[in-house]
Design a protein around this nucleic acid. Structure first.
Lengths: 258, 258
DNA sequence: GCCTAGGTCCCGTGC
DNA sequence: GCACGGGGCCTAGGC
């Protein structure tokens, strides 16, 4: 039995002490990893049987369950989060049952030998970002203007005018002057006001028709209406495609991408 | 350092010995679990950043990678099987890079603290059996066509036509050409569209009347109406009878499933 | 390599 | 609650 500030370990535990350790871990909402020899039955939307073998069982703090074989990206059996557990020890077999209530589904794991039990309390407050920055969206659109709109032609970017900088300035497919305001996340009314300001400024100096486009992956409630009132457009931006464009151009330029 | 016949464990290892253990584990095609404090960068089809926190890194013997946070069914970052690795130790940071060659993608995991390293050789030869899959329903209907409809005669299955594959193709009791689309769960509008697509394709090539049947245990709201509009039929599938049919033919013993 | 389709898909979003 | 679409979907099967 080893112990750190975060982790308790049991090596080659007998099934009795395993039962205790698992029950304690579950009641304390810890994450648990069991490595051992087991077989599995699943009953629910479908049914499955997994014959005996050595696997890794991972029970997370939120009640999700994963059973992993030594190969393959996917767990062979699993249960999504928020399931509850029953632990029992019958005839030298430790039985862990994970039950989902919403969808009537149960997963039964039978262990006859455990090699290692790890019970952890992991502290993980880090944010996860699946994204590209506003600069990268800009770069992606400049590289591949179709990401904004078919046949768009950029003229300049970060163009300085009186009220500030225009993200992208160009011509649409009909040759109309166009101001593009980019937002990385869900665009709100502030973005619309910013765009309207630039469009007005350009219209004043150019004294010819000017289009305004709000480019963002999403817009907030009511923004569509506001845009319509001000006669501005919204173009949905596909962040994934932007990421691909940026990554690709970067990778071809910078050798040591990998 | 503890050791069983299958498993090597390092508790609170320093980064130097971690580097050695991981390199050895990889070269011997073992499965490796790392528990520690890390941050992650992913670059490929999309891009992501995961800020520092305590997680579990799981590298499988086939070169698949999973990074799990303390909650959630899915790994926060991952790499499918067959990727290769680079391990380096720079400025008190252990960097594990997992690279996919087919799709140009890289995953970088940076550890500044490791709590536990587990290196395993898991022996897992057990077979996995999944029942009540779409394939099984298909097999059941082919074996006993009455499960679909009285006097139905299958001609072929997985028949390739222009838009895709027809699950079952046959003749109904009146000898009319029939396309069957099978769904294992509750069939939605997507299934109807799929069916309609195949029926149209067959009608074009056969230039005679063609029936379309959606075969599923249940259908979603509005699907019945959609089918009626498109002049397609629905046949409710009894999963229990399908399972029995397949069980009998395969002579596998799956008692009290239902 | 591309395309097609299934999945115990899971998961978010909108109704 | 149900229905629908997206995912770094993954994976298997054809061509």
């Amino acid at each position: 039995m080893g112990k750190t500030s975060h982790i308790s370990i049991l090596k080659n535990p007998n099934l009795d002490s395993s039962e205790v350790a698992i029950k304690n871990g579950l009641s304390q909402k810890r994450s648990i990893i069991l490595i051992g020899h087991c077989w599995v039955e699943y009953n629910g939307r479908a049914r499955s049987i997994l014959e005996p073998g050595e696997r890794i069982l991972f029970i997370k703090a939120d009640g999700s369950v994963l059973i992993h074989r030594p190969t393959g990206y996917k767990p062979v059996n699993w249960q999504p989060s928020n399931c509850y557990f029953k632990i029992s020890l019958i005839n030298d077999t430790l039985i862990i049952t994970a039950i989902r209530k919403k969808v009537q589904e149960s997963l039964k794991i039978f262990f006859d030998k455990l090699f290692l039990i790890t019970v952890m309390e992991l502290v993980d407050e880090g944010q996860f970002y699946l994204h590209v920055s506003e600069k990268e969206i800009q770069k992606a659109i400049l590289t591949n203007p179709d990401l904004l709109e078919k046949a768009f032609q950029p003229i300049s970017y970060e163009k300085k005018i009186e009220p500030g900088f225009i993200d992208i300035y160009g011509l649409d497919k009909e040759g109309k002057l166009t101001v593009v305001e980019i937002k990385r996340g869900r665009a709100g009314k502030g973005a619309v006001i910013q765009l309207a300001k630039y469009v007005d400024a350009i219209r004043d100096t150019a004294s010819r028709p000017v289009r305004g486009i709000l480019a963002a992956p999403q817009i907030m409630k009511g923004v569509q209406k506001m845009l319509a009132t001000l006669n501005l457009d919204y173009r949905k931006i596909d962040l994934k495609k932007c990421a691909q464009t940026v990554t690709f151009t970067k990778a071809t330029k910078i050798q040591d991408f990998f």
